[in-house]
Amino acid sequence: MKEKNHSNHFLLLSVILIVFFFINIRFGSVPIPFKDIFNILFGGDISKDSWETIIINFRVPKAITAILVGSGLSVCGLLMQTLFRNPLAGPFVLGISSGASLGVAILILGSSIFGGALLTNSLSNLSLPIAASFGAFLVLSSVILAANKVRNTMSILIIGLMFGSLTSAVISVLAYFSEAAQIQQYLFWSFGSLGNLSWNELIVLSCIYSVGIVGTIFVIKPLNSLLLGESYAKSLGINIKKSRNIILLITSLLTGVITAFSGPIAFVGLAVPHITKIIFSSSNHKILLPATAIIGAIILLICDSIAQLPTSDFILPINAITSFFGAPVVIWLLVRKKKLYV
């Protein structure tokens, strides 16, 4: 298929990504000039020692997290939309994020109910992502089990929503029996935040992220044939069951680990694939997958830059910003184009 025509698009997007990466690092409670940022990152004279700590230990990990989270969630949204052949699908709508929340809720809130056996004071690096991935995978497999029975895609979405509210109900019950400190810890997690990751945690996130993203390259072929529906995909020699399981595994792994570290971040997974499809006007996953990843990264970098309210001490919940600025963008794109594609 003709990919060459899009190389300019990709070049432009990469430049935008790099620009917003530095803009994201530039702004914060302490303004640091670009000159010093470059000196810190690439070696050179530094005006203030504290700036180096801020850049290296806080802002760069946060910007990298934004890139990983933004691209990861967007790719998951794209996978879900194609798998279900439904433009409304996304990690959020299908209850996958709620599943991850449930995993985290059981870990954080459950520790106060079932005693500290589950969790000691320090949330160890891996227990949170494992719990979140497990929760995401649990909900997603339940949705799939139900999906195999009903077949109708609209019903699948509604089933996903129902699983979402079921998990919220379980979380409410858990919260009711928990102590205030745990509830607060969970609540802060659920606001979403990109800034809480240490370098060690970032390494864990990027390892699992890489596994997921590399996995998507192997499902490009089945994804493209699924654009014709399952019967055609099967007649083209695609092993539907195997492909579907791989796609679901990648989605739950990525959504789970991202949600674990950054909290449930709304809007990105649903909207970015559509923004990409409108910009590139293509359905070919060889183009869509990398494009969705880059655009997702850019958008989350922008949202995060806005969230830290330049030059102020406040940081707004990232979740609010993504929905607040994202939803109107999608509505505007849709009103203009009047059509959503799988």
């Binding site: 298929m1 003709k2 052949r85 433009p87 072929k221 493209n224 044939s225 654009l227 014709l228 529906g229 055609y232 083209l236 020699g237 695609i238 499809k277 006007s281 293509s282 359905s283 070919n284 059509k339 959503l340 594609y341 799988v342």
Partner: peptide, 17 residues
């Protein structure tokens, strides 16, 4: 077919999978 933005050429090319 599910609504997508595949071109005619891309659709035919899928036959080569």
């Amino acid at each position: 077919l599910p609504e997508s933005q595949l071109t005619v050429y891309e659709l035919i090319a899928l036959g080569r999978q």
